[in-house]
């Protein structure tokens, strides 16, 4: 959890807006540090968290969270965190000889054209289940790292958009929880949408669905060691009759145990 980002978004673990869909995206940069922020943020806020970790192993997320002061293993034991480790689940599908573990969540790997119904059912069952622990948890939160891995594995952009829409309906609207999803694109913005495996299409579709986007980019002037890139924060508030969009741009640097955000040109390396 980065306190600077919290003050930019004006939220704290004690008071945050419910029913939000936050979209994280990146282009020629890496936005995964934001996933770790939201993971530790919602665990601190005592929400019930469902995490779909599709690209890294559990121990990676656990080690980073440890640095941010949160123990994922404890959260898992207490029933606060439900973690889907995509990598280990996928092996039983990709190498069919292994005896099946019975988890159907990654079944789309067998035939990506059928869509993500099995994954949605996993999400639905984990956000609605009471967990069985003695403690009571707050509203459910769904985190996905990251949706573009699904595209790489052959799922169509349309199917991913369907998945996110279903999740939004269940998590955000029905249960008044929050949802954070990460999409990674590469290539230029102006490029043709149809030739890039659908990640542009997916990004546009999700930007339409969400209520807050954090878009991470590399610096337009090129690589720099002290400024890792810039974040564009964009709120889409539906107030009364019209839509009100507000944008802010920050530069950031990722440290060992957090990240700092500053206005453009005010990095300590330049001043």
């Amino acid at each position: 959890m980065y306190t600077e980002l919290n003050s930019i978004l004006s939220t704290t673990p004690d008071s945050f807006t419910q029913g939000e869909f936050i979209l994280l995206s990146d282009r020629k940069s890496d936005a995964s540090f934001l996933i770790h922020h939201f993971l530790s943020f919602y665990l601190r806020a005592r929400c019930k968290v469902c995490f779909l970790g599709l690209v890294q192993s559990f121990s990676h997320y656990s080690a980073v969270s440890q640095r941010l002061g949160i123990s994922l293993t404890q959260a898992k034991e207490k029933g606060q965190l439900i973690f889907l480790e995509g990598l280990t689940e996928s092996l039983s599908v990709l190498i069919p000889q292994v005896t099946s573990t019975g988890n159907k969540a990654m079944d789309f790997l067998r035939d990506p054209s059928v869509g993500l119904r099995s994954l949605y059912e996993f999400v639905q069952s984990s956000v609605t289940s009471s967990g069985g622990g003695e403690e009571e948890w707050g509203p459910p939160v769904l985190l996905v790292d990251d949706l573009s891995a699904l595209l790489s594995l052959g799922v169509s952009a349309g199917a991913v958009l369907d998945f996110s829409h279903y999740c939004q309906a269940t998590v955000c609207s029905q249960l008044q929880g929050n949802m954070v999803m990460l999409v990674r694109c590469d290539g230029e913005e102006e490029e043709d949408d149809w030739d890039d495996g659908g990640s542009e299409l997916l990004l546009k579709g999700l930007t339409h669905q969400c209520s807050l986007t954090l878009h991470v980019q590399g610096l337009p002037t090129g690589y720099c060691r002290d400024i890792h890139g810039q974040v564009e924060v964009c709120w889409r508030r539906r107030q009364g009759d019209g839509q009100n969009t507000q944008k802010k741009l920050f530069q950031y640097k990722v440290h060992d145990k957090g990240a700092s955000f500053f206005a453009r040109g005010t990095s300590s390396a330049v001043l």
Binding site: L87, T88, S90, L91, L94, I95, L109, P112, A149, S152, L153, G154
Partner: peptide, 12 residues
């Protein structure tokens, strides 16, 4: 998606 799927399995 064949190579990407293979690399996913390899990473796993």
């Amino acid at each position: 998606h064949a190579l990407a799927t293979f690399l996913y399995g390899l990473r796993a």
